[in-house]
């Protein structure tokens, strides 16, 4: 069962072609890690999936809905495909709980009390129930990112897109975020994770994808990906980061 199907995706910014024909199928329950050098187009692919960026050409099907079809309600698609950003992007003027309940209340029209119950349960899940009444600026980076994950979960999405969720964190705070992501993976959540955390990709991913120069250079299981990489660019890349 396909959760995300990307067919011949191209994306240009002006004259600069960033994505040069990508095909990708992500099945329900799969955890797919995307790695690649900075500027290779990883974020762009992810952001095309929930149409934060508009593809130049190609098709993207999310949970059976063609996101480029004018009849598709993109706001609904976005509730099915949550997103976690490198810079967290929490809403600084709202409490942690309100960050998590905004979607349920305004998008799902959930009654306040139900939304609060849901929000607290999600904060509990990421280990931050005691911070519900705090403001984001009172949290550490790792805590902020865990709130962002709770916010992404608040609409009960079918897939979550993570764009370098630990890259903005101090090294000692990376673990707590990866731990939450591991738990989500073990619960069967479909996840697409752009990351430089090779350990996480090796342990948690069902598939690892190497994107360079706007195309998929390698797409295999973590064992082959790390121990027996076929693509010369990937070998070069792994040599540099290892």
């Amino acid at each position: 069962m396909e959760m995300i199907k990307i067919i011949n995706l191209h994306k240009s910014y002006g004259d600069l072609e960033v994505i040069k024909g990508i095909d990708l199928d992500i099945k329900s329950g799969e955890v797919v890690c995307i790695i690649g050098p900075s500027g290779s187009g990883k974020s762009t692919v992810l952001r095309c999936v929930n149409r934060l960026e508009t593809p130049t050409s190609g098709r993207i099907i999310v949970d059976g809905k063609d996101i480029m079809d004018p009849d598709t309600d993109i706001n609904h698609v976005r509730t099915e495909a949550g997103m976690v950003f490198q810079q967290f992007n929490l809403f600084p003027h709202m409490t942690v709980l309100d960050n998590v309940t905004l979607g349920p209340v305004k998008v799902r029209k959930m009654p306040r009390s139900d939304a609060d119950k849901l929000g607290l349960a999600l904060l509990e899940k990421v280990g931050l129930a005691d911070k519900a009444r705090n403001y984001p600026e009172q949290l550490s980076g790792g805590q902020k990112q865990r709130v962002a994950i709770a916010r992404a979960l608040s609409l009960k999405p079918k897939v979550i897109l993570f764009d370098e969720p630990t890259s903005a964190l101090d090294p000692e705070l990376v673990g707590e975020v990866l731990e939450v992501m591991r738990q989500l993976a073990s619960e069967g959540m479909t996840m697409v994770v752009v990351t430089h955390e090779m350990g996480f990709a090796r342990d948690v991913a069902d598939r690892v994808i190497f994107i360079d120069d706007g195309v998929v250079q390698e797409d295999s299981n973590p064992g082959d990906f790390f121990s027996n990489p076929k693509n010369p660019r990937l070998r070069d890349f792994l040599g540099k980061v290892a």
């Binding site: 934060l52 706001n75 609904h76 976005r78 509730t79 949550g82 950003f85 929490l90 962002a148 608040s154």
Partner: peptide, 8 residues
């Protein structure tokens, strides 16, 4: 982007 990503 964060707002749009939760379906607002």
């Amino acid at each position: 982007e964060a707002g749009r990503s939760i379906g607002l």
